[in-house]
Structures are given as structure tokens and as C-alpha cells.
């Protein structure tokens, strides 16, 4: 059995669990628990270990999706998951600039732990106060659009939008491998 593993990471409330639930063929195995810290301001429950989703391509090939916890105190889980995976998507909520530094921290962590292809998935782009893609990239430390990772807008509730995002990630993987 051949399995391709993708990590979906990002801050609390960026849309990781929703994305995996939307596209997974199985009921997502989640480890959500009632939020008792500042996360409770954003959502009632939060992921404390990881979310797991699956897509079966054929009898021999599978796609596994792992959603990381958003809070940095669970970074040991980020470590475990990124070491198991072949690519990752960093979800960033465009309307929540307060979280951009946190997203940058996750990005630094992931890039340090695993030299694997990645893209940025920008969510909540239709919300009030959403930032432009170029400014989000600058906030994440990418001053040069030419050398920054691909950034795509993604709606975590829309399977088609997620599929397009994952295709861009796979294309990035092919490009990286060719280079």
C-alpha cells in the first residue's frame, strides 16, 4: 500500500479541522477538547493531538491528511507529524493579523524540522478586515513574491477549493523534485 501524507497546519481557528472534515472520505478522527484558555474566545473546542482524514485513490494508493494542533504548546505534535509527512499546507486566516506572527512561528518550526514542499493556504479572505495576499506574505517574512512559496486562497468548507489547493501543493512537490 502506497500512502501520501500531507500535514495541514496553522493557527487556532485557521480552518484545519474544517478542511480535513470537508474532504475526508471517513469521519475525521479528531482529538478536539473543550478549550479552556484564550482559544475559547475563538472556538469552543480545539485540537489537542491531531485530526486525521483519508482519501482512497485506488486499492493500492491512499492520501492521509493530518491536522496539527494550533497552539504552540503542542509543538511536540507538530514535530511528530511533520516527520511523517511528505508535504504540508500552512493555513493562515487573512482577517486575523494578530495570528500572523504565530503562523510565522509554525512556518519556522516546520521548515526547520522538515525540508518538504509547502504552500500557504489563505482562508477567510471574504471576511471583513482580510489582508491582501502580498501583505500576508510580507507578514510571514516573504519580501520577494518570486521566491516565496505558492499562496492560494482556500475555502475549508468547499471540497473543490481544497482539491485545487492540494493540486497546487502537489505541483510544488513536482517542481521541487525537478529542481
Amino acid at each position: 500500500m502506497e500512502i501520501f501524507k500531507i500535514v495541514i497546519t496553522g493557527n487556532v481557528g485557521a480552518g484545519k479541522t474544517t478542511l480535513i472534515r470537508t474532504i475526508s472520505e471517513i469521519d475525521v478522527v479528531d482529538t478536539d477538547r473543550h478549550a479552556t484558555d484564550e482559544t475559547a474566545d475563538l472556538k469552543a473546542n480545539t485540537t489537542v493531538a491531531f485530526d486525521f482524514g483519508r482519501i482512497t485513490l485506488n486499492s493500492e494508493q491512499l492520501l492521509y491528511l493530518y491536522g496539527t494542533p494550533g497552539q504552540s504548546r503542542f509543538d511536540f505534535m507538530w514535530d511528530i507529524l511533520i516527520n511523517q509527512s511528505q508535504a504540508y499546507v500552512l493555513l493562515v486566516a487573512a482577517h486575523r493579523p494578530k495570528d500572523f506572527r504565530g503562523a510565522k512561528r509554525i512556518l519556522n518550526f516546520m521548515n526547520r524540522k522538515g525540508d518538504i514542499p509547502m504552500i500557504i493556504g489563505m482562508t477567510h479572505t471574504d471576511c471583513e478586515g482580510a489582508w491582501e495576499a502580498d501583505d500576508v506574505l510580507l507578514a510571514l517574512g516573504f519580501a520577494d513574491r518570486e521566491t516565496s512559496p505558492p499562496l492560494v486562497q482556500v475555502n475549508p468548507e468547499d471540497p473543490r477549493s481544497i482539491a485545487q489547493c492540494l493540486v497546487v501543493l502537489l505541483e510544488q512537490l513536482v517542481t521541487t523534485a525537478a529542481a
Binding site: 492520501l63 471540497p159 473543490r160
Partner: peptide, 20 residues
């Protein structure tokens, strides 16, 4: 990390394009 075969990536792209 285990390398993904060309067939896996190609099938995955086709699946995502055709099924969603």
C-alpha cells in the same frame, strides 16, 4: 522521508481534479 512515486502523485492530482 519515504519518497512518493510518480504514479502516486500523478494519480492523486487526477483524483483531486476529477472528483471534486
Amino acid at each position: 522521508k519515504p519518497k512518493a512515486s510518480k504514479s502516486l502523485i500523478s494519480n492523486l492530482v487526477s483524483f483531486l481534479k476529477d472528483n471534486f
